[in-house]
């Protein structure tokens, strides 16, 4: 077995324990910064940049002005939209440390593999009892692929199950290097129409589709489809994805997982001083999504919602 580099550093914006929807059993999700895509529905917009960002929660703010006085970039002022001038902010975190009300929250912290594993070990008993383990998410975990790789190796050294949540957008060589250490890849396929894909995510889909096939040859794969009204919620959109899934290595295909659109990320855009392009879009109703699920199941592929 290859030795693990426990000193390897990565940029982590959240660690979420007791996750039960992202792989088998009870899991801890490690969220990494950095994503090459810009999906309009992204529920974790704070993850997109490969550097720490500060979020401003106006509800907690007591308007004391301390943040303004500590900011060396002059990025803070009540005249700015969402308090912070994002063109000036460098994500140094000084304001967050000084804020007495907890209204400025840093997302993105350097951690070593060893530090992350120490946090994960706290739930070792829960993984053992439930068959759970580590899920690396993002952002796109393959952006920080070296860190991701070391983390996966370290998790396997503990005997934990490993999973990643990926857009599939990465160089082939990275896929070949990292995926052998993944027990389950939760892999997004957002649209079979490359134009639509590019319009809503910022990148075309050819590279992704090629990688998805490759992943299915390496490890277990669950195809995940965020179902977004107006983008891919039509029957034929979903059926095309199902057809594509049929072309994957069937031995490794665990099924299709439909993730109905939700607007729970909207608040985060406000906290980042950004506009939410999908404002006003309704969450999908349960009956409609169940119809889609039945359609997929008719093609002989297992399908679950949520």
């Amino acid at each position: 077995m290859e030795p693990v580099n426990y000193a390897k550093e990565g940029l982590v914006f959240d660690i979420q324990r007791f996750s039960v929807n992202d792989g088998p059993g009870i899991r801890t999700i490690v969220f990494l910064n950095g994503c090459p895509l810009r999906c309009q529905w992204c529920a974790n917009p704070e993850s997109q940049l490969l550097r720490p960002v500060v979020m401003y929660n106006e509800l907690e703010c007591i308007h004391c002005g301390i943040c303004k006085s500590v900011c060396k970039q002059g990025a803070i002022g009540s005249g700015n939209k969402g308090l912070i001038d994002r063109t000036k902010c460098i994500g140094c975190g000084e304001c967050s440390i000084a804020c007495p009300a907890g209204a400025l929250i840093m997302k993105g912290k350097k951690m070593t593999v060893e530090e992350v594993i120490k946090e994960l070990k706290k739930d070792g008993s829960q993984y053992r009892r439930s068959g759970g383990g580590l899920t690396i998410s993002g952002g796109e975990p393959l952006v920080q692929h070296e860190f991701t790789l070391e983390l996966l190796k370290a998790a396997h050294a503990q005997g934990w199950n490993t999973a990643i949540e990926t857009t599939g957008y990465a160089d082939e060589e990275i896929i070949r290097k990292v995926l052998p250490h993944v027990d389950l890849s939760l892999t997004d396929v957002k649209s079979m129409d490359s134009k639509i894909h590019e319009q809503y995510t910022g990148v075309p889909n050819e590279k992704i589709l090629k990688n998805v096939k490759l992943i299915s040859d390496i490890t277990k794969i669950m195809v995940r489809v965020p179902v977004i009204p107006g983008v891919n919620e039509k029957r034929e959109d979903i059926l095309k994805i199902a057809e594509f899934a049929k072309t994957l290595n069937q031995q490794n295909l665990m099924g299709i997982n439909l993730l109905p659109y939700h607007s729970m990320g909207e608040n985060k855009y406000k906290m980042l001083g950004r506009d939410y392009k999908l404002h006003g879009l309704h969450m999908m109703n349960r009956d409609d999504i169940n119809v889609l699920r039945e359609q997929v199941e008719k093609t002989g592929i297992q399908c679950k919602v949520g």
Partner: peptide
């Protein structure tokens, strides 16, 4: 939900 979490009390009223 999959790939996402937030504290309930921080969500917008409509959500």
């Amino acid at each position: 939900v999959a790939g996402y979490s937030a504290h309930f009390v921080t969500l917008a009223k409509e959500v």
